[in-house]
Design a protein around this nucleic acid. Sequence first.
DNA 1: TTTATTTAGGACATTTTTGTCCTATTTATA
DNA 2: TATAAATAGGACAAAAATGTCCTAAATAAA
Lengths: 144, 144
Amino acid sequence: MFSKACEYGIRAATYIALRSLEGKRTSLKDIAKETDSPVAFTAKILQQLSKNKIVESVKGASGGFEIQKRNVHTIKLSQIVYAIDGDKVYHGCGLGLRECNGAKPCPVHDKFIGIRDGLKNMLETTTLLEMTRGLEVGLTYLKR
Amino acid sequence: MFSKACEYGIRAATYIALRSLEGKRTSLKDIAKETDSPVAFTAKILQQLSKNKIVESVKGASGGFEIQKRNVHTIKLSQIVYAIDGDKVYHGCGLGLRECNGAKPCPVHDKFIGIRDGLKNMLETTTLLEMTRGLEVGLTYLKR
DNA sequence: TTTATTTAGGACATTTTTGTCCTATTTATA
DNA sequence: TATAAATAGGACAAAAATGTCCTAAATAAA
Ligand code: FES
Ligand code: FES
């Protein structure tokens, strides 16, 4: 569904959001540990998220990553997916034609559109705040 | 969503189904041409589909690929996807945890389940016959 | 001011996916 | 029977995705 990079990105952003709500900045090392992700690869992904203003990074001792509390409930999963995987979720054809196009649809177009819209809707309505809800009370997990 | 191999596989199987309904066997060359797919790569995929009894292959001059007419309406997209991409559509976690597991769900689990079930349902209820319907009358396309 | 800690980013390595090429085998037909 | 046309399958190649390593720069604190 998503690339590994994107999966790591969502997990990382979610963990940063969780920590930010506690008023804490989080180091790359901790993020990688708590999301069970490869450290150096996660670093690259966080660079992307930082450039896209999804997370803020602070260099130097006691530096790390954070998200302004007031932004945690405004950031949508769609922004993260877009920053990492681009718009293929939005324009991709289910059968791999160059782009989805209702004027010359592939045989799965009508059915695929429904599924894609469901996904799109989910990504556009789910906020990082919502992602942290279950984590706080141990109902959901970012690693196993 | 699906691998390139799977996309090519669905397109190839659909075209073979269309031709089989006309009582015609189709060569690899034609399949690749009509689905705008790389010939040799498509050959590999057709080998898989053949091993999985989704298409039948006939060697030699005037050989090619075909599907028994009576099977065209019984073969589901899910069979093709399973033959090529395996069961990750069924057991994959949206955030890349080792496997989707409702007992220790990731933060998108509940929402993801819905989308995945929609996809699953679509794959399991769409037959090759249905895939060919629009093609016959020029309403849908396997290439552009 | 020095040192330790931390992110930024370029270069490189590995793995997976995608794609090609060649030879063997099968089969219809001339 | 010889030839041409077609799939099967192994080996290889290229590209993309994933992942690692190292140095530079920034910053807090000793
Ligand atoms: S054209 Fe294939 S999904 Fe829209
Ligand atoms: S556990 Fe992640 S989707 Fe089910």
